[in-house]
Computed example of a mutant assay.
Amino acid sequence: MPTGQRNFTALPVIDISGLYRDEPSQRQAVADQLGAAAREVGFFYITGHGIDPQLIAGLREASRALFAQPMPWKMRYYIGDAWGHKGYVPEGEEVYSKGRPDHKEAFDIGFEVPDDHPLVLAGTPLIGNNKWPELPGFKAAVSRYYEAVFALGRTLFRGFALALGQPEDAFESLVTCPPSKLRLIHYPVDLEAVDAPGIGAHTDYECFTLLLADQPGLEVMNDEGAWIDAPPCSVAGEEAFVINIGDMLEVMTAGAFPATSHRVRKVQQERYSFPLFFACDYHTRIRPLPQFANGSGDAGSYGELSIGEHMYSQAQQTYTYLKRKVEAGELAMSADALKPGSFGYTRPRTPAGP
């Protein structure tokens, strides 16, 4: 992407209600806006999504109750003790950049899959049931929210298909049992925080992300290297979601939809953040779509990539418990693993290496 074409100073806002209309031209009109925002910014707000505010309120209440529990209780659900890479993530478990560990904790929920599912029986990483905490109302509230926001992700994926000149259902068969994770993230009050990075700059591994947050802190990098604030946004009383392009859509479009680097600034106030990372099925292998693969530009630098292997290798380089297993020889990274930060219009693609 040539310098100067993504020097945005704010995120666009797109009303996606047209994606739910019967008239194809209305759906295409929204898709065109999604495509333009993906090319020119990589981050944008959506309204008209139809998510019930009560579901959002229930998710927030459940999250506050969870993170208010004592640490020994929360560590009963430690992500490193559970199959499928789900559960509680204590402060310092994730490392995106050097320096002081991120002052945050999280609880990771995935696409619910029973123990007798073929992918679970085959030992597929990132796939399995959730480690639900014994907390009244938690599972019901979080499950309802997950189902609603995942359905919203399906709607957006149909919109992206139209934006890319594909049939509206072109990607439907790629999303049947995906490693799509919902994260409940809590940033406690930090009176020592300064106006500096919290979560290090990174791109998201999946196709795209749907985010709700209750406080500022998110920053997005434009092509001039400037950090642009992306605070919570409401339009006519409706909370907007922040949508950002991930690594997988960058591959599918050979960089036309670049994954955009972002970070969370360290802030003093308490903050809750809820990203849903929308992915295709684990064994899906993606490559640039024909109109990009056969064109000019960067198509040649994008080879075929396994979605699941990419996501798992990135996690193995980010989560402390997985890094320890790799170092001990208990786990092996894919031979095609890339280093974190290998995508995005500001960074080259580089192998993880030894």
Score class of each variant (00 low, 15 high):
135 L>K: 06
135 L>P: 03
135 L>A: 05
136 P>Y: 01
138 F>P: 00
138 F>K: 08
138 F>W: 03
140 A>S: 11
141 A>K: 11
141 A>S: 14
145 Y>H: 13
147 E>M: 02
148 A>G: 02
148 A>H: 06
148 A>R: 06
149 V>P: 00
151 A>Y: 02
153 G>I: 05
154 R>I: 03
155 T>I: 13
156 L>Q: 07
157 F>E: 13
158 R>M: 04
158 R>S: 11
166 Q>S: 02
166 Q>H: 03
168 E>D: 08
171 F>C: 03
173 S>T: 11
177 C>T: 15
177 C>I: 12
178 P>R: 05
180 S>L: 05
181 K>L: 15
182 L>E: 06
182 L>G: 07
185 I>S: 09
185 I>F: 06
185 I>W: 05
186 H>A: 10
187 Y>K: 07
188 P>C: 09
189 V>E: 15
190 D>W: 12
191 L>V: 12
191 L>P: 01
195 D>E: 13
197 P>K: 02
204 D>I: 05
206 E>R: 00
209 T>R: 03
209 T>C: 10
211 L>W: 11
215 Q>W: 06
222 N>D: 10
222 N>Y: 09
225 G>Q: 09
225 G>N: 13
226 A>T: 09
226 A>E: 15
227 W>R: 07
228 I>C: 07
230 A>V: 13
231 P>I: 09
231 P>K: 12
233 C>M: 15
234 S>W: 00
235 V>K: 05
237 G>F: 04
239 E>Q: 14
